[in-house]
Simulated scan of single mutants.
Amino acid sequence: MALRAGLIGLGMMGRHHARVMREVTGVNLIAVADAMGDPHGVAAGLPVLASVENLIEAGIEIAVVAVPTQFHEEVAIRLAEAGVHTLVEKPIAHSVEAGQRMRKAFSERSLIGAVGHIERFNPALQQMRKRIQSGELGAVYQIATRRQGPFPARIADVGVGKDLASHDIDLTAWIAGSAYASVSGQVAMKSGRPHEDMVLVTGKLENGVNVNHVVNWLSPMKERLTTVTGEKGTFIADTMAGDLTFYANGTIDVEWESISSFRGVAEGDVTRFAFPKREPLRVEHEAFRDAVLGLESDVVTMEQGLHTLEIVEAALESAHTGETIHIPQH
């Protein structure tokens, strides 16, 4: 029997969720809802329900929440109260306090509560993490990300920190297998909106890895790069293309004296890996399905989503106070 699924929020992300939910084995999309209607024709014959209450009344077992961030708490907690396993788009909520209430609502009822940090399911990052775990990089020294592009008019309720930097903070902790120990942040507000549109974050993980994130909505050039440097070389993942490249530290001596004196390591082979590139959203939905069915799954939990939001808020606090924020260990 396929899981009876519902979707609330039929905007840009809701459109993609609906398509994938109709394609994933073991999931049957039976109801959709959005108080603002269906601008992208997501319903495809299903009635467009007006509220989360109507969605619950349809008899769903699992749900995807793709409404604006400010409504995540209200919708998700109502679904938890109705006993519905739920995948909430990232960030988990508009505030840490709201996220804590959501986590509690699902854990108290032994329900799966997941957060849609889709970058964890990007094939380039999954390959990178697997290769780092197998020792191909040796000790990890630094993780740096760049996520830049034009302002998306559809985002109105949060700034670039919670909308985009949350991706990089989550994937960094996941790749390194370590929580954040401290963060410092800088922000800019250049587009006339009440929220920040540029964030610079530096920090350190509990395992000693240095991290850096450059995130903005102010660049005409779209960029999604994750660079991990370690004792054996550097991995670079381009998550827009799903490509992974490894720059190895070489063992060949540089005979040109004028440049060899400036190099701490030698340039070695450059390898661009070939691997299957499955759609990240589909892999994310399969992980959510498996978690609900009690199977082994690497779904992003609400606990992990909450930690990510805590780091984002700490970076924004640092930008306001000018102080480095030290993160309590969990």
Rank of each mutant, 00 (worst) to 15 (best):
I118Y: 02
I236H: 01
A98F: 02
V214K: 12
G203F: 01
P68Q: 10
R272Y: 05
G159D: 07
A153T: 10
S95A: 15
E310S: 14
E108T: 14
N212K: 14
M21H: 04
K204A: 13
V199E: 05
S166H: 07
M12Y: 10
G250S: 05
V52R: 09
F288E: 05
S134H: 07
I112L: 08
R263S: 15
A179N: 13
K162Y: 03
A124G: 09
A44S: 15
R146S: 15
N216Q: 14
H285L: 15
V52G: 04
A58L: 04
V209A: 02
L46N: 05
H40K: 10
A93D: 05
A188W: 09
R101C: 09
E61N: 14
K222V: 11
E108H: 12
P220M: 12
K162N: 08
N249M: 07
G99W: 06
E286F: 09
A5Q: 00
A33D: 00
E57G: 09
L205S: 05
F106M: 11
I325L: 09
E89P: 08
E57I: 03
K204Q: 14
V254I: 13
N212S: 15
V96S: 00
L171A: 12
G6Y: 08
F106W: 09
G242Y: 01
S258P: 10
L295M: 14
I56V: 15
G113Y: 06
M12A: 11
G177R: 05
F273A: 04
S260C: 10
L244Q: 03
I132R: 06
R131E: 07
R19P: 08
E303T: 13
S182D: 01
I30E: 03
L46T: 01
A176I: 02
N122S: 15
S297K: 06
H307I: 07
E284S: 12
R109T: 03
A76I: 00
A314T: 07
W217N: 15
G192L: 06
Q304G: 07
A44M: 15
I327Q: 00
F262T: 14
E286R: 07
G45W: 09
E257V: 13
A98V: 01
A2H: 11
N212M: 13
A319W: 01
A43M: 07
A291Q: 03
R154T: 08
V48P: 00
F121E: 02
H85D: 09
T321H: 04
S110Q: 14
L10C: 11
